[in-house]
Amino acid sequence: MTALIRLRLTGLTRTGRAIAPILGGLAIIGIIYGGGPARPTEAYGLAAIVLFPVLAWLTKILLDVEPDTQRQLSVVLLGSWRREILAGLLAAGIASLPVVGLSLLLPWIIGGVTLSNGGPSLLPALLLGLWAHLIAVPPAVALGALSSRVIAVSAGRAAAVLAGGVVLVLVLGIPGSPVPWLAPPLLSVAHTLADIQVRAAPMLPFTGWALVWTGVVLVGYGWLRRTRT
């Protein structure tokens, strides 16, 4: 399975198709930071929200980069469609990590954050920012997988799943929503991190919430993949 993960990551980098979403996402984050230096935790909470559609799109690109027949060949060679699915999801998760790193680094490079506005000191702020970004990765990978070609089949349907999924996550997840649990807790995390008094966000419940949401979406993805290799 490691070999398949490596092959898919190599395919992604060699085709260069990942550049557009990554540059687009980082540009939007850059624009957000252009409003003046913010507290790192506040900035990172917002950046994680922006990163969500970027990572979902990146996942879709990674899963779609190989031809359908090649994916089927991988199923035969691995002897298991479940392992092929897992390899795709893990590859998408790994591909997300450099983007998370860039997103954490970017505000310091362009002067979008400052520690002089109060809030946590550098290390706790960085750790909270990293956590906010990391809990966006599994839900983004799950949504990206649902919009991949093997499930969505047509480009139009894939775009509808991806864009519709992102809009729903933002609308349903907004603080005060009657059904916030229908979306991963990205907006709730950003809201919590925007608090100047934040020292340690309720990391465990939010992490659990994000993982449960991801699990539910991935069960649906796996169920659909039973008949779609």
Binding site: L4, R14, Q70, L73
Partner: peptide, 27 residues
Amino acid sequence: VGWVPEHFPAEQPFTVDRYLRAMAAVA
């Protein structure tokens, strides 16, 4: 199981050698 599809998916960014080595590793 060795499966040879009717149409080999050649639209991939690898050389023959790199591809076959990768397939062997996947197996």
